[in-house]
Design a binder for these strands. Structure first.
Lengths: 154, 154
DNA sequence: TTAATAACAGACCATTTTGGTCTGCGATTA
DNA sequence: TAATCGCAGACCAAAATGGTCTGTTATTAA
């Protein structure tokens, strides 16, 4: 529920890794997969999609690999999620095939949910890969301690 | 991706329906399921959980049913999601069993993701059921006019 | 007192989504 | 021209989710 897929995790890890490279440096899949213990085959797919969506530049040759196509500043987290998962949508009926939704006729919650969804998307759109990567570490054990991020002002 | 489950949809629909009742009025599962075409058995489970979590009051008798236990103003959307799905967490490794995460040792993205998650949770916590229900309708076609087109169809 | 009503409980199965594997092809360059 | 790398898609396995089935328990009205 509201969870990112592992593929998005892998994408963000790889992008993080690539961002740390020198300008123009290419990195191949194996290097990334070894750095983070990600199965190469699935990482390959992830990077392919990022490349197809214009986030990565691929160098299709020996000594080739991938590099960022745009500055990390110009890539949003939403871009990454969209590239990998298709699209973000908290509504379970927002798959473009609304006919399948039994509740569509008298659905009281659609527009409120759209508002929430809009906020989430704005939030994801608003954070660039650069900002994401240089995010200050939070203090350890946050997640299992108490989710004290809750009260944190934005 | 980042999608709410149908059970949460059902919960929100039911809560919306219950909010529209007069004070003290109880509604049984069948009435709700007919109003929205939701299978009664699964709706039963959803309402049971809401009741167990203190969001609904159950009346276990003939002519019984459910009613809101607290004013809609005092129930957040996050409360509802937590009641139904357990907990919200965008991290795929945040299940309390981190040992299973291969990337934990050199994970560059954990704390940034925690920040995003915190923001999302704040947003969900900040919206009450009352606000949710009385949300202004968005102009038609928002979903398909813009949001949905951001990613490729699957 | 008892039968009807409605919630409670959990095992169970089906479907969908996701993660991951396997196989082969295509581009580039040393 | 062979080695290295990405590209592509079929395919399978595992997990999450949606939904069904069977039965139990509490309350009330007849």
């Amino acid at each position: 529920m509201l969870k990112l897929t592992k593929k998005v995790d892998y994408a963000l890890l790889a992008l993080s890794f690539l961002s740390q490279q020198e300008e123009g440096q290419v990195v191949n899949i194996r290097e990334v997969s070894e750095a983070y213990q990600i199965p190469t085959e699935i990482l390959a797919k992830v990077l392919q999609r990022l490349s197809k969506k214009g986030i990565l530049q691929s160098h299709h040759a020996p000594k080739g690999g991938y590099s960022l196509k745009k500055p990390a500043r110009n890539v949003s987290i939403l871009d990454v999620i969209n590239a990998i998962d298709g699209s973000v949508g908290i509504l379970s009926c927002s798959d473009g095939h609304e006919k399948t939704c039994q509740q569509i006729d008298n659905c009281d919650i659609r527009s409120p949910l759209e508002r929430i969804q809009g906020k989430i998307m704005w939030l994801l759109e608003d954070m660039s890969l650069e900002e994401f990567i240089h995010s200050e570490p939070t203090t350890g054990g946050v997640l299992h301690g108490s989710i004290n991020l809750l009260g944190q002002p934005r």
